[in-house]
Design a protein around this nucleic acid. Structure first.
Lengths: 203, 203
DNA sequence: TGGCGATGTATCGGTCCGATACATCGCCAC
DNA sequence: GTGGCGATGTATCGGACCGATACATCGCCA
């Protein structure tokens, strides 16, 4: 999942780790708090050794005045950039509709990159997610209807709140699906900018 | 977190692993799908070696007809039961208000055992959670107000949905907190059974 | 009798997190 | 002018939890 998110952000522009984390935090703020460095750096290394991204010292460090020796073993920033293979890989991941696409973090991350996803895949993911949430909803309804007397008031309250959240999300997904089928982009009351060409196509 | 959940369930009655997982699924259905065996069994072993629970073969297997030798190396069910030390440990965990208590799984699990938590701790946890969610809410509002033009329509939609969920949860928490302060148990329109004594007190 | 779904225990590799460490940079108060 | 402090920046380590997988038993029904 992190892999998809990182490739997606680097697809827009090269970045170093810290910046990547900040961008991730604003882009995925609704999903997860902030990605941990304990996940970020190992993943970056993995992507790098797989050839999806390149790992290069910052340009500012690449052209030093040469006179000045590294006084304190300066560890410059490392700027990561996506490669052509990385863009291909990103495309694959985007199109993927595995079961993990529907669990919470997976769905959120995919959704965050819907602008780069084709319409069919968007629809498949939205419907898969809806199905998932509906199953969860039914499970909660069952518990509330059948096992209510065996649970304490707080546990029941938790179930009710969860059920409410499920119902709300299903409604949200319904809207999105209907919107998607009608071919319109999602309702954006802020800055209804015209569809700006096809920038961002692979290669 | 799993530790708390397991001790909490075993506090009610002894159980074997499979049953534990099912109970967990209904009790925590609103929080997480179902606990994985890859987490459950290692945790059980950890709790066992720490002395919080005992690990004994099922009674049904303990009195076999003796004539019948184990034809196929029968691996009987293992019934786990909480120990006195385990109940103490459970009490400690319940009272704990660390930062992990406020992230999503942590909060949910604590909440699920609120019936065994004292009123002060309940209030502290609810208020901590509210603060957390309020911060998240402010973050999302900031992004929507300040960085909206840099994000695509889908990402914005995700933020909006997240913001909505935050606002809703804050309202829910407000209600629970108000309820808690007034000394009343949570509103239970189903089976308003009278408060049944103090069963479940430590020892 | 043969298969199939539920019950049941268990491991393995992998992803991600939280805590921690360490270094630089710019700025402001003293 | 200097000393601290918060933001920037890279990195590792142990641990929690998950998903896939394997294997065995049991009851039931075709």
């Amino acid at each position: 999942m992190l892999e998809l998110a990182i490739l997606g952000l680097l697809h827009e522009s090269p970045m170093h780790g810290y910046e990547l984390r900040k961008q991730l935090a604003t882009k995925l703020g609704a999903i997860r708090a902030a990605i941990s460095y304990g996940s970020l750096y190992p993943t970056l290394r993995r992507l790098q050794s797989a050839g999806w991204i390149t790992d290069a010292p910052d340009a500012a460090e690449a052209t030093p005045p040469a006179e000045i020796p590294p006084l304190t073993s300066r560890r410059g920033r490392v700027v990561y950039a996506i490669t052509a293979e990385g863009k291909e890989r990103f495309g694959e991941l985007l199109a993927q509709t595995g079961p993990e696409t529907f669990d919470d973090p997976g769905f959120g991350i995919h959704f965050a990159f819907f602008a780069r996803t084709d319409s069919d895949t968007r629809l498949r993911i939205l419907e898969g997610r809806r199905r998932r949430i509906e199953e969860r909803r039914e499970g909660l309804r069952d518990v509330l209807a059948r096992a209510a007397e065996r649970l304490d008031a707080y546990t029941l309250e938790l179930q009710r709140h969860g059920l409410d959240a499920c119902e709300r999300e299903v409604r949200w997904l319904e809207e999105l699906i209907a919107n998607e089928r009608s071919g319109r982009p999602p309702a954006t009351e802020t800055t209804p900018r015209p569809p700006t060409d096809r920038s961002g196509r692979d290669e």
